[in-house]
């Protein structure tokens, strides 16, 4: 899931003041931001109270099922058309994709209420760790299912580097060197190290990227991949 963190309230205040907004509508997200406790029903209500305490007038709020689904976000907003027509601006408690879906659909100045941090794994309820860079060319086959592109602060494919000391990464200070961890897990599984991994092909990560499932399905029906 996409892990979000609260954005500086001073910054949100400045954003709203920059357009002279007084009446503000709030949008959350029923998916990742709800799980991260940054943009669910509770947080939307709490943020609306904060707005009221700081001289704004909250005009309403909504938590679409999945805010980064633009047609879904637009349909959720349509149900609040009156409140939106009565608003000067919208604050979105969702990731950057969710905020842009709302910005496309709202017809008003839209501001981010969160910072989008990383693609995370819930290591237990309420605790998330960054585990994937979405680099476009997975190396987990060679690295025992542990991603060095993410877990090594330098993103090295071949390690350990000189910052490894007693198996600990000095750049991170308190965590095991991921290259040592990879080697240990490979050995425990009776697998040899993969040898020197070649430089990454970053053309696989060119942005902006786009995927059309419709197109792929159509081609699949034509019998090609």
């Amino acid at each position: 899931m996409i892990v979000t963190k609260p954005r500086s309230l001073e910054r949100i205040l400045e954003d709203l003041q920059s357009v002279g907004a007084r009446r503000v509508f709030v949008v959350g997200c029923g998916e990742c931001a709800t799980a991260a406790r940054t943009g669910g029903e509770e947080e939307v209500a709490a943020f609306s109270r904060w707005l009221a305490e700081h001289g704004f007038e909250p005009t309403g709020g909504v938590v679409p099922e999945v805010t980064c689904h633009r047609p879904g976000a637009a349909s959720a907003l349509r149900k609040h058309r009156e409140a939106l027509d009565d608003s000067d601006a919208v604050v979105v408690l969702a990731c950057g994709a969710g905020t842009q879906a709302v910005a496309d659909a709202a017809g008003l100045p839209v501001f981010p209420g969160l910072e989008s941090s990383f693609l995370g794994m819930a290591v237990r309820n309420g605790e998330f760790e960054e585990r994937c860079q979405m680099c476009g060319e997975c190396v987990l086959d060679a690295t025992a299912g542990i991603c060095p592109v993410t877990a090594c602060p330098k993103g090295l494919l071949n390690g350990p580097c000189g910052a490894m000391w007693e198996g600990v990464c000095e750049a991170l200070g308190d965590q095991e060197c991921v290259h040592v961890r990879i080697r240990e897990r490979l050995a425990a599984q009776g697998r040899g190290a993969a040898g020197v991994l070649p430089p990454k092909d970053w053309s696989k990560k060119r942005k902006p990227d786009a995927v059309s499932v419709r197109e792929r399905v159509r081609r699949g029906q034509e019998g090609s991949r």
Partner: peptide
């Protein structure tokens, strides 16, 4: 002096 030496040596041989 880096430990574990096995990981360090494998990198050096690489």
């Amino acid at each position: 002096e880096a430990e574990p030496w096995g990981a360090q040596l494998a990198r050096a041989v690489g």
